[in-house]
Simulated scan of single mutants.
Amino acid sequence: MIPWTYQSSGSSSDSGQDSNFQYYQPNPSLILNSQTQCIATINSPNAYTSSMVLSGKFLFTGSSDNQICLWRRNLFSTELGHESSPVCNMGVPGKGVVKCLVVSTDKIFSAHQDHKIRVWRIDMDERENGKFTHLATLPKLSDRAMKFLVPKNHVEIRRHKKATWVHHVDSVSSLALSNDESLLYSVSWDKTIKIWRTHDFRCLESISKAHDDAINAVAISLDGYVYTGSADKRIKVWRKDSEEMKHYEVSILEGHNYGINALALSTDECQLYSGDSEGAIVVWQRVNDGDLVVAGALHGHSKSILCLAVANDLVCSGSADKTVKVWKPFEGLNSCLVTLEGHNGPVKCLAVANDQYQSSDSVSSCLIYSGGLDFEIKVWQVLVPNV
């Protein structure tokens, strides 16, 4: 396995690399022996897995047939992988894909292709069998009714058609929770960002035309910065004004030549990773004044980056090229440690198990969960040398 080292690029090449970028290029003189194995494969005959998130001992998955499932992670083993069934599952009202899932202390939020956000509670019995309870669909009927009665709350969504500003009018593509879990942020292909209060599910704010094209991803730092990535090739940084209690645009990050599909913050939040439709992952480094600047780009995928996930010092990327790549900092730079091959379709979603990242003197181990358009969920055990 050949890692990638940081190297300045010269002029633009035939591959379309921007001369303003610095790239990680192969360094044959440095080889790390990473070991990996697929320890479980779950087949879904009816739908592909479109979203996933880990929470404690469980894995939540959303699918293209509007199902949300809860899996007990200890059932994913070589022996049980093909026979495991979810602890519980829920067929969601409406049609379309479950685009994103986030879990708070006591709730699960799901984003849907039918323009809605749904809120759930999981009730577990003493045998750890679960049951989904539907708490709300956002925007709530009461919220819609209050806004509907006041004309100024109506916005034009297309020619000769209006809706209240609490509505998303296209697929809700991504969700994120504030650090204290009091606010839920949703972004949509309708180019808007909406902020919801989680205790009563009220829409507090809508940023209309936040981008010039569909918004595909959102990430939030512990200190309150909100990052949104769009098909308009830009990342925007937002911050809440403590006096007006409204969000304002802090800066625009420009460095991609193609639309942005995924965002992820490093564990220490000093780097932001953004993946685009050409297969590049741009690494943004936070400098002393808090601004983010381009530190480099990770190249190795041959098609679109569809998802990113971070755990401790590992960065995982899933792509339309049917592979998952695992990246690890080496001498301050990110090296491609291993490529996970086994999916027969694009890799749509990823999750990395933080709590199973266990280190010895020479080797670290973690579990990576991947969902593909091949209707399979795979679980990978990756052993990484400590360098």
Rank of each mutant, 00 (worst) to 15 (best):
Y6F: 15
Y6A: 14
S12Y: 10
D14V: 10
G16H: 08
Q17A: 06
N20A: 14
P28A: 07
I39F: 08
I39D: 07
T41C: 13
P45T: 05
P45L: 11
T49E: 03
S50L: 07
L54N: 06
L54M: 13
L59Q: 08
S64N: 11
N74S: 14
L75W: 13
S84Y: 08
S85M: 15
G94H: 06
S104R: 07
T105C: 09
D106P: 09
F109C: 08
H112D: 05
Q113P: 01
D114E: 06
I122P: 10
T133C: 12
A136W: 01
L138V: 00
R144T: 05
R144K: 13
F148T: 06
F148I: 02
P151L: 10
R159S: 15
V166C: 15
H168T: 00
L177C: 06
W189P: 01
K191N: 11
T192D: 03
T198M: 05
H199A: 02
F201V: 00
A210G: 04
A214G: 00
A217F: 04
V218G: 02
L222K: 09
D223C: 11
V237T: 05
L253A: 00
N261E: 09
D268V: 00
C270I: 00
Q271D: 00
S277A: 09
S277V: 02
R286I: 01
V287T: 00
V287S: 00
V293C: 04
L298T: 00
L298F: 03
L308D: 02
G318I: 02
L333A: 06
T339Q: 09
V347T: 03
Y357E: 08
Y357A: 07
S365R: 13
L367H: 13
Y369H: 09
S370Q: 07
E376R: 13
E376A: 09
Q381P: 09
V382E: 07
